[in-house]
Design a binder for these strands. Structure first.
Lengths: 397, 397
DNA sequence: AGGGGCTGTGAATCTGATT
DNA sequence: GAATCAGATTCACAGCCCC
């Protein structure tokens, strides 16, 4: 009892004479930390997360990762254009009576999370526009200090089937410390290495969880919102050290636990649904810790730079009203078309994208508009593709 | 005075007998809108934006775009009067205080924005993690209904020089309507065209404002946070119609005004700093409006004039007795049905409209008969929709 | 063996006009 | 105001099967 565990000791063992001074400084700034032996490491606590967290000692965990209910407030059923049914999140755990009720719930679990976090620990929360603004404002009010908001850009999101809004293609994570002066952990070098020697940015392109990684039972998904391991992998690699204790109050099917085990972190979960707990324990038992060489293979692929024609309009490289000339060829007349504000072309009674207009005019099934259409640039006719190349050159990362 | 401006009239003019009923319905649901002549269009109102907005009539603008101060310490109203530094002990209290001041300021300008917006208008706010969570929570509390949160992913952000956090490579925009039931404007088809025939997503990759677009005076930038025109271009093209009134309460150097002029939208600005106003007016005067044909965008089928199937029969495009073939696919057998003189279909023991027959035969809740049924035309099987398009082309005004 | 085509599906605040 | 009906609407993968 009473042993002070310094996070720094897990990185490298300081020379003995330094320890004393560090301990002294530490004792002044923060309470004595709990020995790991007194923590329910590698266990999923049963029941409501607020109650469950009460059994965890104060200032004892290094990081909290929370994926709370989003409070989606969905309407009726939704069908895809092909008539198939969309399997939505209709679980009871995502139902709240009002924003006020959701806020009270948020304050309650955040208060417990704050209590169990070490002074230099950090908190991650993931959410969507339904809940993330409320969560963010509340945690600021409680004294958490936001370090970054991170955008998880989904490479394969579900489309907006009804064409009523922009495709909801991202979720937001908030990363914060216990306060403005806290010394949080950020493994800058690891992130830069992971990102091909470029600083890791606040937008992460990662696929959603499907395929073999998605837990299924009897052909249907065990949990409606299972997160991809790649997301937790990056979170933990960036903001915890080996041996750190990670707490997930909304454990679900245990993505946090599985990744913690693989990366040599300790974990604690809270989950009130038995079938989620069972699935999580089974999954984590099967997860194998990674060795160093395996870690280096986890680099995510970089997003290929794709430039829609519309971007050239928005950024002024091509002006609406410009006349484009269709590439001539064997007995082909020279077509012309005018660029409109949304990037569509219009020519006689034909209108559409650069590709479909090219195809229609030639009577071809398809056409690459980038090479078909020519545009005047600095006194010369050049294919659109040349302008795209100029744009890419000017906007390199 | 008292003229009712219907958004629908800018899309397509309904038959005269319909107009009367629409106006009546409109009068019941919302207050009479202000004629544009009574609005300070194309003007920058001097002074504090909350005061300035008070001079704008209720329910008079179609869209508000707001780029409020991000940093709590910067705004004059928000800074502590003595400017003193607070030590670590009282830091929490001070933070609560400044969050509170920022929240009050946010509620005040959002209340005025809500007042001047038409019931079917929409609001955009841009911010960073310092303020956007507070703004988002407050606007939800005020009854605004979030439609999307949009991530502006900067293609050339400033790096994190000290290597202490992730590179702050994005800003967040919130797009919301006046309430859950409001009929907001979303030009789905224009966005899809702009994005090379894929749905526009919630993450937008656009460069920051620099180069020739960046306003400079004596070699230094006029405004610290000038937004790129490409960002406003996409916002306005997506969520306003030609002729709509756009209000920007934090006008700065007038990006909103310049893009509004180019795209044929009306604009009103509020800005209290003289040098920003001067720079903005000069800039907007130099901006060239696009001509009519360049502004027009791809129309969605929803906006196209409706053609009842019966019309194709009456006008001879489809003959009674014609056999239609149901689109096959996804294990679907090839259905057939016969066209009757009144435009109904009959097939075995099923009869009804092209839509209801399609739905019944597939056992689906609904069906678009125009794309489901195929008809022989000039030796080829084509969807009914193709005949509808031919009819529309042949009967253009 | 490999490629092409068909099917299934994912945190979704997902229609609008007329009767 | 609820019910009815016309009709508009999807992207990236993974996992099959089949040739």
């Amino acid at each position: 009892m009473g042993t002070v565990l310094l996070k720094e000791r897990t990185r490298s063992t300081p020379a003995p004479r330094k320890i004393a001074s560090r301990i002294r400084k530490d004792l002044v700034l923060k309470p004595v930390e709990t020995p790991k032996a007194d923590l329910p490491l590698g266990r999923i606590l049963d029941g409501d997360c607020i109650e469950a967290m009460r059994s965890i000692p104060t200032a004892s965990v290094d990081m909290v990762f929370a994926d709370p209910p989003y409070n989606l407030q969905l309407g009726g059923d939704l069908a895809r254009p092909d008539g198939s049914h969309v399997d939505a999140v209709t679980n009871d755990w995502d139902k709240f009576d009002s924003f006020g009720a959701y806020d009270r719930f948020t304050r309650a679990w955040l208060a417990e999370a704050r209590r169990v976090l070490k002074p230099n620990g950090s908190l991650w929360v993931i959410g969507s526009y339904h809940n993330i603004f409320r969560v963010g404002a509340i945690l600021q009010d409680m004294g958490f200090w936001i370090l970054n908001d991170i955008v998880w850009r989904k490479s394969n999101p579900m489309p907006n089937f009804k064409g009523t809004r922009f495709t909801n293609a991202h979720e937001t994570l908030i990363w914060c410390s216990m306060g403005e002066e806290a010394k949080y952990t950020f493994n800058y070098r690891a992130m830069k290495t992971l990102n091909d020697e470029l600083q890791m940015r606040s937008d992460w392109v990662l696929p959603i969880c499907n395929g073999a990684e998605r837990l299924k039972k009897g052909g249907s998904k065990v949990h409606p919102t299972q997160k991809p391991e790649s997301l937790l992998y990056r979170v933990m690699l960036a903001t915890t050290n080996k041996g750190d204790v990670v707490l997930d109050p909304f454990f679900g099917t245990g993505t946090t636990g599985a990744v913690a085990k693989r990366l040599g972190r300790e974990w604690i979960g809270c989950e009130r649904e038995q079938n989620y707990r069972d699935a999580a324990m089974e999954r984590i038992e099967m997860a194998l810790p990674l060795d160093e060489s395996a870690i280096s293979t986890m680099k995510s692929k970089r997003a290929a730079p794709k430039v829609p024609f519309g971007t050239l309009i928005e950024t002024g490289w091509v002006k609406p009203g410009t006349v484009l000339t269709g590439k001539k060829g064997r007995n082909r007349p020279a077509f012309t078309a005018v660029v409109r504000a949304d990037g569509s072309l219009v020519s006689d009674k034909i209108e559409g994208s650069i590709h479909s207009c090219g195809a229609q005019l030639q009577g071809a099934p398809s056409c690459n508009g980038w090479t078909f259409w020519n545009i005047e640039h600095e006194g010369q006719m050049k294919p659109l593709d040349a302008i795209r190349q100029l744009y890419l050159l000017a906007n390199e990362d």
